[in-house]
Amino acid sequence: MNKQRFMNFDLTTIRLPFTSIISILHRLSGIFVFLLIPFLLYIFDMALSDSDGFASIGAILGNPISRISLWLFLVALGYHFFAGVRHLIMDMGFGEGLKNARTSGAVALVITLVWALWIGVWLW
């Protein structure tokens, strides 16, 4: 008799429903924003210190990695915001059905895409 206990728990065998992808992206974007707060505070610190500090932002963002980081931060923030608004609307009792939840999730994704492009144009 095998005393070891097993569970069927292999995420690669599970089909993730669309709404769960919307949800996990909300979580990931939140963590990402949290981790990049110091970067943003640093930029604001520089920007508001004096005109020399402000000028140094141009140099900071001249580095492609920091520019891409800022873009990713703003995209993640945007998604977290749009998916958050979706949650608040559902909390008020609207669109709690599966069909509406899928639609609102897709809307959040599409708006984020537009936002990402718009931010990209602004940053580059």
Binding site: I37, P38, L41, F44, D45, L48, S49
Partner: peptide, 12 residues
């Protein structure tokens, strides 16, 4: 972060 933010805002 909180106090850093205050410092940024209130220094000038």
């Amino acid at each position: 972060y909180f106090f850093w933010g205050i410092e940024i805002l209130w220094r000038f």
